[in-house]
Design a protein around this nucleic acid. Structure first.
Lengths: 84, 84
DNA sequence: TTGTGACTTCTAGTCCGTT
DNA sequence: AAACGGACTAGAAGTCACA
């Protein structure tokens, strides 16, 4: 009565994992420290660290700031690694 | 000194628009009211209304709840309509 | 059925540190 | 360079009355 038959079951909390892994990956590709990324995104260094450790429930506006700092689209930050 | 040369410039606030448009579209495709979606996502009806009107800076966990209710992946909710 | 402003509670997000 | 903690403030979550 609600979900399309072919969509894979998605465990809660996976979004934080996806974001964390993509941020870590993209930041690494650019050779940036957490502090450098935080500066580019206008966020605090400890907050970026929390996000990468999945310890915080980041808001959409700040996801967007991270995406812009990394030079990618917002949805790219939430794609499964297999597709990134 | 920061952004890859070929990434398109993305205006701030677009993420809310993207999310809103995708939620409205997917909800419409399913013939659901805001209240029905809210119920499926475990959220309040007025909260969904605020999100669709871009009036709230929703967090990642709740984006995930909406995605699960709609039976799509999180990144699908933030894709440009042209690619959805 | 949906939009909206206002309100309280709780956590996102900052800033200071130490390891 | 990054994990981790404490204390604090800004702002999201969640709800309601009403248009």
């Amino acid at each position: 009565m609600s979900r399309p038959p072919h969509s894979p079951p998605t465990a809660v909390g996976q979004a934080r994992d996806l974001l964390a892994l993509n941020v870590i990956r993209l930041r690494g590709e650019r050779g940036w420290s957490q502090e450098a990324l935080a500066f580019e995104a206008g966020l605090h260094r400890t907050f970026v660290a929390h996000v990468e450790r999945r310890a915080r429930n980041i808001s959409l506006d700040n996801i967007e700031h991270l995406a812009q700092a990394l030079g990618v689209r917002v949805d790219q930050l939430l794609k499964p690694l297999s597709e990134a």
